[in-house]
Write a protein that binds this DNA or RNA. Structure first.
Lengths: 203, 203
DNA sequence: GTCGTAGGTGTACAACGTACTCCTACAGGG
DNA sequence: CCCTGTAGGAGTACGTTGTACACCTACGAC
């Protein structure tokens, strides 16, 4: 009986993701997303309760193309690494959503499926109960933290450069390490940290 | 010759921290902080360039009582753990600043001194060059990530509870692990993850 | 006392999220 | 075919935010 809807949540999520990809996090406004859809700001409230829910939609849309199926090749450590890297790669395509991840992570079906796959691998590795819960949180913490450091930490490079320029008298190790760090590419850095974690899990 | 200042950066930082501790991150506004100081919003701009700089001040103030001196007791792994735990405890006293940490971390002198101490311990452990840089980033990523998960993840507990209530048919491992996770206290969880990382660093 | 400088205040504006009100396009019944 | 009830979309408006600008004023040096 009623008038049919002219938008759907996927269109809204896509538009919002486009806005944020193009203009950064500060461009994500109700009015901005509405304009992208040739609609008005208030119209969006027929589909989302508030801005918070719009953010959750963006996060889910950004994560949607993470492959959450269980990897089959390699031992369990390699399979964990594959899952974690898949997540990182996809997030890397939408760096502006990084600040939204910690807040909306637990509402995303993709994150749930991904976590389920991760836990399955950990179970195969012989981890169960509390030890598995701790292992999961450690992997989650590292993943979230590393991705944030990568994208927010130095506003991509500036922070590390600034640290490398610190007085070697006051901060000898920091200045030296920052100089070293500039020569490590982000992939190697991420994988290196992940490997440390996986070595720790294996023993 | 000029009129003397009636405020100083420490007063502003303290007032801002008080505001955010009491009213949460959303209470941190120029007007709100000004009211706390019995001043006007515009007055603050004689001391900080913009809101961003005020946030940096809050972060530094919140972290100010982290003891960044090098621990002396225990082997290097224990000393790393002591430094990391000191940071976590202090941040735990100001949970509302957690979302500001990733953005302003690299501007904080306290973080610089803390990092310097951490690197010194890693150097004693025989790590140098690229390997030390990677180890540091891994520890940083875990620390930042774990603290965020702890304070933002589930709005403290609700998310884990929601996950425990998921359909065991669709998410068997997740539902079980979430149920287990509810019985792990936060300190043990954090220390457990940290220990995994340190074990990985030791080999 | 006088003066110049710099600190504090007041006003104002654009942009934000969103509550409320109205108009109107459409699916079903006659 | 028209008519009608319902729900979608638009418009307006309000309170709050950060902050630019102009003004006033309190104070140290002479």
């Amino acid at each position: 009986m009623p008038r049919p809807r002219s938008l759907n949540p996927i269109q809204i999520a896509s538009a919002a993701l486009a806005v944020i990809d193009q203009g950064g996090l500060s461009a994500l406004t109700m009015r901005g997303v509405a304009k992208e859809l040739n609609a008005t700001a208030m119209c969006l409230y027929r589909y989302v309760a508030d801005r918070d829910e719009l953010e959750a939609l963006v996060v889910e849309q950004a994560l949607a193309d993470v492959d959450t199926t269980a990897p089959v090749d390699g031992d369990w450590r390699e399979r964990v690494a594959v899952l974690v890297r898949r997540m990182r790669v996809v997030i890397g395509c939408h760096p502006a959503v990084v600040p939204l991840l910690p807040v909306h992570r637990h509402r995303s079906p993709t994150v749930l499926r991904w976590t389920e796959s991760l836990l399955a691998v950990l179970a195969e590795a012989g981890l169960d109960g509390t030890r598995r819960a701790v292992a999961l949180r450690a992997l989650l913490a590292y993943t979230v933290g590393a991705i944030q450091l990568e994208h927010l930490g130095p506003l991509s490079g500036g922070g590390t450069t600034a640290m490398a320029a610190l007085s070697p008298a006051e901060f000898p190790h920091l200045a030296a390490t920052a100089a070293d760090a500039r020569r490590v590419d982000p992939d190697a850095e991420f994988d290196g940290g992940l490997e440390i974690l996986l070595r720790g899990l294996a023993t």
